[in-house]
Amino acid sequence: MANSRISRRTTVPVASRERAEKRPKKRLPQVRNISLGGVAIIVGAVLLVLVAIAVPLRNYYEGRTEIARLTESIAAKEAEKERLLADIARYQDEDFIRQEARRRLGVVDEGEVAWRILDPRMSANGAVTTPHDATGADVAWYEVLWDSVAEPPLEPLNPTPPPVEEPLEEPATPAE
Rank of each mutant, 00 (worst) to 15 (best):
I53S: 15
Y142I: 14
K77D: 00
A150W: 13
A127D: 04
R8E: 04
V12D: 06
P56D: 00
K25V: 04
L157V: 02
E166P: 12
W141S: 09
S148A: 09
G126S: 08
W141K: 14
S123F: 09
A45D: 10
L57E: 14
L157A: 00
G126C: 06
G136C: 00
N125L: 08
E100P: 02
A140T: 05
T130I: 10
L57V: 09
V46A: 06
A172Q: 12
K22D: 01
S35E: 02
V43L: 15
A76Y: 11
T135F: 10
D93I: 10
L36R: 11
V43K: 15
W141R: 13
R103K: 13
E110W: 05
V39N: 03
W146R: 15
V49K: 05
I67M: 15
E169I: 14
S16E: 14
R104S: 08
A140Q: 06
D138K: 01
L47M: 05
E170Y: 12
P174A: 14
E80F: 02
A86S: 07
W141A: 10
I34V: 11
T10H: 15
F96E: 05
S73L: 07
D147T: 03
E66H: 13
I67Q: 08
L50V: 13
K77V: 01
D95N: 15
P56C: 07
E176L: 04
I41A: 10
Y61C: 07
L70A: 03
E78S: 03
R32P: 09
E78K: 14
G44D: 08
R103Q: 15
V43G: 03
G44Y: 09
L154C: 00
E165V: 06
P152W: 09
A134C: 00
Q99L: 15
W141T: 07
E166N: 05
V128P: 04
K77C: 02
E176S: 09
R9Y: 11
A76R: 13
T135D: 03
V164H: 00
P56A: 12
V51D: 07
A68Q: 04
L48E: 11
D147K: 04
K25H: 05
R102S: 11
A172E: 10
V113A: 07
V128C: 01
E72H: 10
V49G: 01
S7I: 05
I41M: 13
T130W: 05
K25I: 07
R83E: 08
I6A: 09
S4W: 01
N59Y: 04
R69P: 02
T129H: 11
T135V: 04
E151I: 14
V149N: 04
R116N: 12
D119K: 09
K22S: 03
R9L: 12
M1C: 10
M122C: 01
P171V: 00
L105T: 05
T129F: 11
V55D: 10
L50T: 13
D95E: 07
R121A: 13
A86M: 06
V113T: 11
R64P: 05
P29E: 12
K25P: 01
V139C: 06
R102Y: 14
R83P: 04
L36P: 06
S16L: 15
Q30G: 03
R8T: 01
P24Q: 08
I117C: 06
L118F: 09
A54V: 04
L50R: 11
R23S: 12
P131T: 05
R9P: 07
R5Q: 03
R64S: 01
V144T: 15
M1S: 07
V164L: 13
V12T: 13
T65Q: 10
A137D: 02
S35Q: 03
Y60V: 07
A134M: 02
P156E: 13
